[in-house]
Design a binder for these strands. Structure first.
Lengths: 309, 309
DNA sequence: CTGAAAGCGCTAACAG
DNA sequence: CTGTTAGCGCTTTCAG
């Protein structure tokens, strides 16, 4: 900045004013400064600037996702990106890879880089260890040990939709396939029990099929695809019904098309970004849980009627 | 840091040594410092540290992708992430959304945050405007106007694989469907011409089908999926052959399975990360183009024989 | 509208 | 092994 000042024939402070877009600078001087900036390839030093600056905002939001490869994460990312960009800020994202240590390291990195806030799909059981004293919002999984807003799909209602749909097609013996702990699975259990159905619970679709269920309900995209493969391998894709939690690309092009309870990642991402900006702006209300409804999309696999009925 | 020093009863410099992991500190003092750090919730100021530090490394790599949602980008991301993490650094990524202005802004942001290097899948026609005087490597599209290493799939060879495969199954009249300009499409043209085939070139699969080709070659995942939909809608998925460039999830579960020329995003990502670390370490060789081979994966759609043959 | 001086939090270079 | 001093690049405060 000193070099720029020298070349433009002004004081350092005037350069600072121009670089920061203050309007109280003589246009002729400002032009000379901008010229010098361009010719010297000057780039302001963010860290030095932040050292003294009153307003500590950097216009940067950190996003931590367990697995950037999943279609759900990707859609969430895009929605958050759109909302954050619309407000003139930027999203930088980090891939946690389901590793709590990396979750902590990335949160720490964002905090050291003075991100204005964090949006996190947590992978660790408790989040207290990463508390980086900057505004944060959780998405898709409830945060524990660290009060913050949380945006969730309404899993319990989603499970209810799936189970009642299968029940309407005559099914009584339904296998739940998945590995997820806690609240989400609990939602499925409650839905099954409430409907008075026989429940088979397994991690592996092939094992589940041995128990002769007439319908499958799968907990995530990964498990849904595994179930499709197992059904096709056994030639049973038209004899056992299947409803998956979470939509995925090409679900409509398979044969039969896969019926899913779709989350709404666009609404979830937008809600998370909005909640975060409220926190950044200084909102100090109690931590909220924001629920986003799910939708059942019938495509064929969930409408396979029970055998012999 | 001053507060920590006071509480631990040592000088500021000793705190600095402990925080930076220097080993020349009395263990008892170091323990006292760490205790004070924890109790005060002290977090070092990266910007201030960098201001004076000789080694300007931050252990951070910036990754710019045109669209984080695409499976290819996601796979690339994961591979880069793995290689960078293995070397003890972190990847922060930004979604460019095919917008040259955002590409520039994100590169600028990473530069200001002192990223050690950049990996970019460029979207702008020329990259000279974003040249952020830090080491950079391009992936998946050749960089123009800014000499840097580039990692590419061997498109020309990939097109040859596809065309020869279709030719072997009796096809002479092949539609190329895609919108991509420049080198990649050029590769397809050359491959077609070299094989002496009749080429129909269209953006839209439905239009292409009107020209009665016996086989389709699609340029990207998006176009491949559009072609699958068009073929299924016309009931022609077993009468017209299809080979797609770039593999995608569930391609094997469709009926027929979709034959593709698969890129190798894992190898591409690893090569890009390695090239970048060489540049960061000070390698000053001429800009290279690193080619990663493609593989034809036969799944059914590309082996549909020509009608009546 | 412009500039001079002080100091943000930290590390390099040098003593002890 | 530990401490002192100077100064990184910038913005603040305050005086012209």
């Amino acid at each position: 900045m000193n070099d720029v000042a020298r070349q433009a024939g002004v004081s350092l402070k005037t350069v600072s004013r121009v670089v920061n877009g203050e309007t109280t600078v003589d246009p002729a001087l400002a032009a000379r400064v901008r010229e010098a900036v361009a010719s010297l390839g000057y780039r302001p030093n963010l860290g030095a600037s932040l050292l003294r600056r009153a307003d500590q905002r950097t216009g940067t939001i950190g996003l931590l996702l367990p697995d950037l490869v999943s279609p759900f994460s990707a859609a969430l990312h895009r929605a958050i990106d759109a909302e954050v960009t619309r407000r003139g800020a930027q999203v930088l994202s980090g891939n946690v890879g389901h590793d709590p240590a990396r979750e902590r390291d990335l949160a720490e990195t964002f905090a050291r880089q003075h991100a204005d806030g964090l949006i996190i799909t947590p992978v660790a059981a408790r989040q207290s260890h990463l508390a980086p004293d900057i505004p944060a919002v959780f998405v898709d999984r409830r945060a524990r040990g660290w009060p913050a807003d949380t945006v969730l799909a309404t899993n319990h209602a989603g499970a209810k939709q799936a189970v009642e749909h299968l029940q309407r097609h005559g099914h009584r013996r339904i296998a739940y396939i998945g590995t997820m702990p806690g609240a989400r699975r609990h939602g499925y259990r409650r839905a099954m029990a409430a409907a008075g159905l026989v429940k088979v619970e397994r991690n592996d679709p092939e094992q589940a099929l041995l128990e002769a269920p007439t319908a499958l309900f799968t907990e995530s995209r990964t498990v849904t695809v595994a179930a499709i493969r197992a059904l096709q391998a056994a030639g049973m894709q038209r004899r056992v019904a299947l409803v998956g939690f979470d939509d995925f690309p090409l679900a409509d092009l398979l044969d039969p098309g896969i019926t899913v309870v779709a989350q709404d990642p666009v609404a979830m991402g937008r809600a998370a970004a909005r909640a975060l900006f409220e926190r950044i702006a200084g909102g100090t209300a109690e931590p909220r849980v924001i629920s986003i409804p799910t939708t059942l999309i019938a495509r064929g696999s969930g409408e396979v009627a029970i055998r012999g009925s």
